[in-house]
Amino acid sequence: MVEKKYFRHILITSLLFTIFVFIGGVILGWSLDNFRENDLLNTLQQNELDTDSYLTEQQFLSKLPLVERCELSEIRSSVLSEELRELGKLLNKYEEEEILDESSYNYLKRKYFLLEIKTYNILRDLKTNCRLDYDLILFFYDPRDVDSKKQGYVLDIISENKTGDVRIFSLDREFTEDPLLEVIKKYYNITLGPTLVINENKTEGFVPVDEIIGKL
């Protein structure tokens, strides 16, 4: 039978073990959160570099005749938006699970949206000037809206099933941290989520796969 002093000893030891595991869990969690955040940031920075490099390239090539310039530009254009969509899915998942703290999350999201818009601008200009054969979709969503979620799944299928060359850019309609987003919302007169801007044509509400394919 255990005596009182042993009881105290057992309680303290158990508490220490629990604290030890708790701290271990917290340290592991923090390290992984940092890893996740850094990984996102690295991918964002990589994309940012790609975009900047592309812009510099465009400046450099500006002296060339349009046909030659377009030929050279087309080669790199596909690289620009490839990783962005994956990044967006990761950010959305973090938001759903509330994994990152709010300030880190807002910073990453803002950086992500800016990069998206930057890339969208480049690709839109390229498409107009060089008549390149890809489709551009701007997707405005509300994070807690069911139709927006459904639209997200539909766009995943569109981008994964390779129904032609489709570049999708998702923007959180409720994100108010960046004034540029507000300008874009005003420009396209975005009032609800989901809203799709497919090749500069706006469609409000949920649009199923077939209908989107019809519009491409």
Binding site: G25, G29, R36, K89, L90, K93, Y94, E97, Y153, E160
Partner: peptide
């Protein structure tokens, strides 16, 4: 379209899992 292992492992709460 949801069988994304990176997405799955990245979205786990490791403090709780530990």
């Amino acid at each position: 379209s949801n069988l994304d292992m990176k997405l799955f492992f990245y979205s786990l709460n490791y403090q709780l899992i530990f």
